[in-house]
Amino acid sequence: MAERRAPQQAQDKLAFLLSLVPFLMEHERISVQDAAHHFGVSKQQVREAVELIAVSGIPGETGQYQHGDLFDLAWDDFEENDQIVLTNLVAIDDAPRFSGREAAALIAGLQYLSALPENADRMAIASLMTKLSRGASTPPSQFAVEGSESDETLALIRESVSSGVQLEFDYVNARGEHESRRVDPLRIESMDADWYLRGWCHLRQAVRTFRLDRIGNPRITAEPITTHVGDVHLPDALFEGSSDDLIVTIDVTPAAAALIADYIPDGAVSTDIGGLKRTSIRVSHYHGLKRLIAGLPGIVTVIDPPEARRAVADWARAGAARYEEN
């Protein structure tokens, strides 16, 4: 069965070959370096692909892959100057279509990003989606993402990111406290339905992540940013642990464990306790924890430490009490 594992990588390589050939036909002469840069691959990957193309072809009338049935390459130019010049072409005339799934993935991506200022021209987006459907070899797969309205805060942040100026806004943190922040905006990120700003916070003197729906009254300033993307480490993961984090032991119903996967630190130990999964999660403070747990009623129970249990119980009790008053 080992051979069944190979296709993923082989399919990527095949997609590259089928895309590279028409590109090389379009550019009668191109350096390995330029081709690698264009496709975002290594020079070695380009060289290997070109070498394979140059010896490939069709069986032809004889079924013997005669010389004229093969692609050919100006070998001297290739080997001595790292230049690609195809001297004989076979079978392929044009770029391939998208698969139905590829088209659907891009269409769903466009739908998802419809809140971005770049996607504000709905007519242009609709025509782009139509082109993707028409450019697919089968109808796009039937999966889709709900579109969203343009978001003013997002547009304003986008403007400040691209012009490299500082941003001021009011922020409500998880404790419910209001603070005025001044931030060097670095990157706009999202996770499903939630949008975030990553930036250098002048108040905290550190990189911070801000939820867009907690940002109020954003203002673009005239001050250029002082910390740039290259100056700091912006990890790929939206939430990363810090040494100040609190570790809390919880029980979770196994089917729902995926809901809190982001909070479970790497290497956390899980045990089975009477059909429940006991593990640990990482939180920056109990204010965040109580909101998280109260929003997963009956699914996650905090076991330890006692202060954490109490924080959750107090929060839920205060919430329930509001219904007694009325």
Binding site: Q11, D12, F39
Partner: peptide, 15 residues
């Protein structure tokens, strides 16, 4: 992620 990576590859083939 594989589907979109290959779609982008094809787009790049268009030059």
């Amino acid at each position: 992620s594989g589907e979109s990576r290959r779609a982008v590859m094809k787009l790049k083939g268009l030059g």
